[in-house]
Design a protein around this nucleic acid. Sequence first.
DNA 1: TCGGTTTATGTAACCCGTTACACATATAGT
DNA 2: ACTATATGTGTAACGGGTTACATAAACCGA
Lengths: 333, 333
Amino acid sequence: MATIKDVARLAEVSVATVSRVLNGNGYVHKETKDRVAKAIQQLNYRPNDVARSLFKGRSKMIALFVPDIMNPFFPELARAVEDTAKQKDYTFVLCNTDDDPEKEIAYIDALRQKSLDGIVVVSSTMSGDYVKNVDIPVIALDRILHEDLSSVTVNNREGARQAVEHLKKQGCTRIAHIAGPEHISNAKQRMNGYLDAVQQEEWFKFSYIEQGEYRFESAKEAAQSLLERHPEIDGLFVANDLMGVGALKGAEAMKVSVPEELSIIAFDGITLGETTTPTLTTMAQPIYTIGSRAAEMLIQQIEQADQGTQVEEFEVELIERESTKRRQNDDET
Amino acid sequence: MATIKDVARLAEVSVATVSRVLNGNGYVHKETKDRVAKAIQQLNYRPNDVARSLFKGRSKMIALFVPDIMNPFFPELARAVEDTAKQKDYTFVLCNTDDDPEKEIAYIDALRQKSLDGIVVVSSTMSGDYVKNVDIPVIALDRILHEDLSSVTVNNREGARQAVEHLKKQGCTRIAHIAGPEHISNAKQRMNGYLDAVQQEEWFKFSYIEQGEYRFESAKEAAQSLLERHPEIDGLFVANDLMGVGALKGAEAMKVSVPEELSIIAFDGITLGETTTPTLTTMAQPIYTIGSRAAEMLIQQIEQADQGTQVEEFEVELIERESTKRRQNDDET
DNA sequence: TCGGTTTATGTAACCCGTTACACATATAGT
DNA sequence: ACTATATGTGTAACGGGTTACATAAACCGA
């Protein structure tokens, strides 16, 4: 590969002049510039980013930490962050953390050695105190890690409340909840939203809440156990779509038909919910938007260190599909 | 951040000695080594990989090119490549190419400037001649790009044949095919496998083949049009699972019940097929294995340039689920 | 005791850019 | 005509490692 010296030699100038042409700074005579440009062209010269990074202490690389890219919520997020990174000329590094704090720290160590410029993190296990001491910008996405760390999330609590309200409007009178892991901030917020909507109801019991993992199987079992214990429930709010699909399968296994006997609504808005039978009603997050916004915020913080903690919260939106349906005993005509 | 000079100063040795300790090469007196190790410890020193890369011309980074990580076939592949990369101390870069050759070339250019060490490529659009002139190792995965480029794939043709045989064994007597895009090598091979199994049958007509994109919607439409034109078909082999799920929906829309009236089998073995109703029978690729193997081959080629073109083909395996079922007019008792 | 290895360590060049600084010429203002 | 400023270009230090080469002491066999 040609180096800047080769270009300088061919154009009969110094490397400094070539560098000036390359970066468009300093004074360069028009004719000189043309000569250099021609030499660059002839040699098909591309500056070595590693040398640049060494000098600048910057690599133009950002990373996204997700628990596991195989979880269908994350590919769209990854796509959004990657698109934004590419558009701003950053290279995109993907890390699967398995929600393991040791892996997270190992990744950060390894990436800092490569002068990584910043990280978008989806995590509930990383210690907030640790993150605060990382010397590069970090943006929390989808889950909150530490109150004074910049983050991009959605209004989980209000969205969850609306989900339950939707079930009520469809005529459900006994609404249960399959919750996500309590150490994950959004799972907790969604449960609170559920409680906001049902705690006043005279029929409400705490045993209407079943805890599970953010996984398909876990939700299937949770749904079965819930339906077993409480055959009277006719509405179910599930903490996320992946679990929602599990719940659908759990109901199917219990021979409870959805939506005729049981309405199910979940949360996230991933495409998986469009392929089930029945399709899954959900409170959709603007997944691409939040991923893209997090990447933008990150790059902004990288390129001008000034701004302090930024917190952005987006709205979720009801997408009504087949798993919720108006009951016959509906009081609105 | 501490540098090698700081360590050298603290340990009262030269930077060369520190470097020797770091890399475990050259002669270093035991006591000196301990002193250096202690200094490294004290300063929490981590060598700067960028400086290393500059000198070595290697970055310990590999990339995976996929058309779009949002396509549910790719996350598992990405996970496999990332796991393998991490295990061998490589950083993992993910690139979405959208099957656009210009993007692919732009990525390669950008990454070569960062001294990227190698690429695992899932692509059908990249020019094989272009790839051959890339000066770093490239492994083709899932699709073949050029005959003398190393690749990891599965036995698509034979797998497809087996899929159709399975339908026959279940009692299907009119078997159609929804094919993938013909410029994608595996789609073509799967179609050939279908033809191997049906071309001799007296009922076979070329209009039993419907071409589509590797997308959900496209397959749904294809299935509907096929069922409209040929209400007699009782078996359907679909080129991949994503399309298979589309076909399931197409049949549902046409009020054709699966598997009672129509058996559907697809190809890939992605988890999406487990969440539909009915669940989707498929010829499963060992997705994680091929991804992981491709990454291993790549790293091997990076670390010892000798070996020539390596081609590995894995077997696919039938996973029988609900979308195929034995017919009553079955001739085997 | 002497030349030949083996062991141990340091000096400096190198990887390839960027930029501070020096220097020279041109243009402008008074 | 004489500074002051703008324009144009080169030299060399720098970023942080690695390693070829030089040097020197210790060890070894004859």
